[in-house]
Amino acid sequence: MATYAPDIPQTMKAVHWTKVGNPAHILTLDENLPLPVPTGTNVLVKMHASSINPLDWKLMKGAFPRFLMPKVKTPGLDISGVVVCLGPNVGKSKKASVQTFTIGDRVMAMLDLSKPGALQDYTLALVVSAKVKKGDKVLINGASGGTGTVAVQIATALGASVVGVCSKTNADLVRRLGAEEVVDYNTIKVHEKYTNKDFDIIFDAVSNLECYANSGKLLKSTGHYIQITGPEDSLYSLVGGLHLGAQIVGRMLYSFLTRGPRFHLVSVSPNGEHLAAATHIMVRANAKTTIELTYSFDLRGVLGAVALSQSGHAKGKIGIIVPGHES
């Protein structure tokens, strides 16, 4: 039987969607849903804050097979909050990777996209490439975005020399985060500025085809090209998905046959150990989370956050804050 904190309500509110389409047309707010019941080694978390990422609205537009997600899908993969209920097997697992939590613990997590997301008052959290090193030179494409701002700080904290690619508007931000140099993609091509195979790693957070096409001028023969997403126009159709898959396999095969720089497509999935390691690096480096704007947890706020994310011009993360937890 699950163990609850006192004074837990019987219902909650959630923003969700049930069909693919324009986020402005499919997102709804339900203010009277029953609370999830934690089973096994799950815990129930009272949500204090979450965020909107590009993946959220790409899923709404059909970037992931609908049958692999819940019938009612709640956006939000990032969560921070407080544990208010323990599943019946919390603390009983013999697996070293399963942490023990107690009611009142403050936690953060990445949720599984095949499960309901974080934009609800209470949510369940499951309790169960290239190595950057000192002296490396790292090119980060999309350095001012939610992923890029974190990548700049982690690479810098690990002793790498970072070159960030972003617009002139965001150049000062990327420098403050630790980049030694910044390239404004609107005025200069990065492969024209660096032609001597200067880089050990390229971290491409925007899936720039031109960047990959010219990576031979940028990367050392022992280097690594890391891509975290596909071009948006390849995500919403079977033909586009097959083309992207063939493209990725081709890049991997080419890098293997030529014994040149290695190509990696990184697909992020929930991993508590990796999140803890990244957090420790950020703490040691006194790194800061870059937040463009925060929105209130209601339908209007979520739609505003989605619209800002879709614009492609947000600096860092876009937060969703539950009223009463603004700090």
Results as ranks from 00 to 15, higher is better:
residue 222 T to W: 10
residue 181 E to Y: 10
residue 180 E to I: 05
residue 251 R to N: 06
residue 253 L to I: 13
residue 232 E to D: 15
residue 199 F to N: 01
residue 190 V to T: 06
residue 183 V to L: 01
residue 198 D to A: 09
residue 175 R to P: 02
residue 194 Y to H: 04
residue 168 K to Q: 14
residue 253 L to K: 04
residue 247 Q to K: 08
residue 213 A to N: 12
residue 180 E to A: 15
residue 236 Y to E: 09
residue 202 I to H: 00
residue 232 E to V: 15
residue 218 L to Y: 02
residue 252 M to N: 08
residue 215 S to M: 02
residue 260 G to V: 00
residue 171 A to Y: 06
residue 257 L to M: 12
residue 192 E to T: 13
residue 220 K to R: 10
residue 233 D to H: 15
residue 250 G to N: 04
residue 170 N to I: 02
residue 225 Y to C: 00
residue 267 S to Q: 15
residue 172 D to W: 10
residue 242 L to Y: 05
residue 246 A to E: 03
residue 193 K to S: 11
residue 225 Y to K: 00
residue 240 G to Y: 07
residue 223 G to W: 03
residue 231 P to V: 05
residue 205 A to S: 15
residue 256 F to V: 15
residue 204 D to S: 04
residue 171 A to T: 07
residue 203 F to I: 13
residue 173 L to C: 03
residue 265 L to Y: 06
residue 249 V to I: 07
residue 179 A to V: 15
residue 212 Y to W: 05
residue 254 Y to Q: 08
residue 262 R to Y: 04
residue 203 F to L: 14
residue 226 I to F: 10
residue 189 K to N: 12
residue 213 A to H: 11
residue 231 P to H: 03
residue 194 Y to V: 05
residue 230 G to P: 02
residue 241 G to D: 08
residue 232 E to I: 09
residue 196 N to K: 13
residue 254 Y to I: 06
residue 245 G to C: 12
residue 175 R to A: 02
residue 221 S to Y: 06
residue 205 A to D: 14
residue 184 D to C: 08
residue 233 D to G: 04
residue 216 G to K: 10
residue 180 E to F: 07
residue 206 V to C: 14
residue 198 D to R: 00
residue 175 R to H: 10
residue 200 D to V: 02
residue 210 E to Q: 15
residue 184 D to Q: 03
residue 204 D to A: 03
residue 265 L to W: 05
residue 174 V to E: 00
residue 194 Y to E: 03
residue 261 P to Y: 05
residue 261 P to V: 07
residue 234 S to T: 11
residue 203 F to S: 13
residue 183 V to S: 03
residue 189 K to F: 03
residue 184 D to L: 10
residue 192 E to N: 11
residue 238 L to R: 15
residue 196 N to T: 09
residue 240 G to S: 07
residue 207 S to K: 06
residue 233 D to A: 06
residue 224 H to C: 07
residue 189 K to E: 08
residue 250 G to S: 06
residue 178 G to A: 02
residue 176 R to N: 12
residue 201 I to G: 00
residue 184 D to F: 09
residue 200 D to W: 00
residue 176 R to L: 12
residue 250 G to K: 03
residue 179 A to K: 01
residue 204 D to Q: 10
residue 209 L to E: 13
residue 234 S to L: 14
residue 262 R to G: 00
residue 244 L to M: 09
residue 219 L to H: 01
residue 262 R to L: 04
residue 204 D to Y: 08
